[in-house]
């Protein structure tokens, strides 16, 4: 598993993809942070982080789109599948590699917040809560991206499909208030990533929300494994 993880991580930085992701992430987050805090005269970062979720919807598909789609297209998955490694460990390795890139960019962008200290006192629990929430939300987004990438062999399809799914998950809470059908509401509330995020922004550690993000991750990674098994047995 470690070999695949290493290889994936390397491939982000032997192609422009990893650099582009990090650069765009850091540039946009820096711009937004200054807009929400310095320019509006506040050191409250929670609204900044709420907006960063939408940046994730656009950027996370970029790092996950290649993971399985390209392997299928170039037939290199044949090497992985015929090697003595299990599909679940390959899926996990790819997930961890994409997540590493995301988490690194996020943590580096958090250094910006330190710069805010010269403008006023930062509410530490609230900030940590937001960062932690972003780590969790990112984790579930990456898992969704990995799953959708395993469905197709076209990386554009994978990217757009992931963006669409993530948008739906982000807007589920908005849709939820407009729809009257019980089952649809239940489903929407189950995938509603955004609504569970709120507690963290108050500086509270919401265990059930944390568990929710972890289980979303596990479910989508499990589905990615199933997709591979199904294809084999088809």
């Amino acid at each position: 598993m470690f070999a695949v993880y290493k290889k994936e991580l390397r491939s982000y930085f032997t192609t422009p993809l990893g650099y582009i992701f990090c650069a765009v992430y850091l540039a946009v987050s820096g711009f937004m942070l200054s807009l929400f805090t310095v320019h509006s005269g506040s050191v409250d970062v929670s609204s900044y982080f709420s907006l960063m979720i939408y940046l994730n919807i656009i950027l996370i598909p970029i790092i996950t789109m290649k993971s399985f789609a390209e392997e299928r297209k170039l037939k290199t998955e044949q090497l992985l599948v015929t090697s003595p490694v299990s599909v679940s460990s390959v899926v996990t390795a790819k997930f961890l590699a994409s997540y590493t890139i995301y988490a690194l960019s996020l943590l580096v962008s958090c250094l910006y917040i330190l710069g805010l200290q010269s403008y006023g006192t930062i509410n530490a629990p609230k900030t940590y809560g937001c960062i932690f929430a972003m780590l969790l939300v990112g984790m579930s987004f990456v898992a969704v991206g990995i799953f959708i990438s395993s469905l197709t062999e076209n990386i554009v399809t994978a990217a757009v499909g992931t963006m669409g799914t993530l948008l739906l998950m982000a807007f589920a809470s908005v849709l939820n208030s407009r729809i009257d059908i019980y089952i649809v509401r239940q489903i929407l509330s189950w995938v509603s990533v955004y609504s569970r995020y709120q507690y963290f922004t108050y500086g509270l550690f919401d265990v059930s929300a944390a568990l929710y993000y972890v289980s979303i991750t596990v479910v989508f990674l499990f589905l990615a494994v199933r997709v591979h098994d199904r294809r084999r047995w088809a």
Binding site: R10, S11, T14, K75, T76, Q78, L79, T82, S83, P84
Partner: peptide
């Protein structure tokens, strides 16, 4: 699988390695 070395029809090569 440990006993087999396999070259598929299209060699499974990573172009960027």
């Amino acid at each position: 699988k440990k006993l087999i070395g396999y070259l598929p029809e299209q060699p499974p090569l990573y172009q960027d390695m």
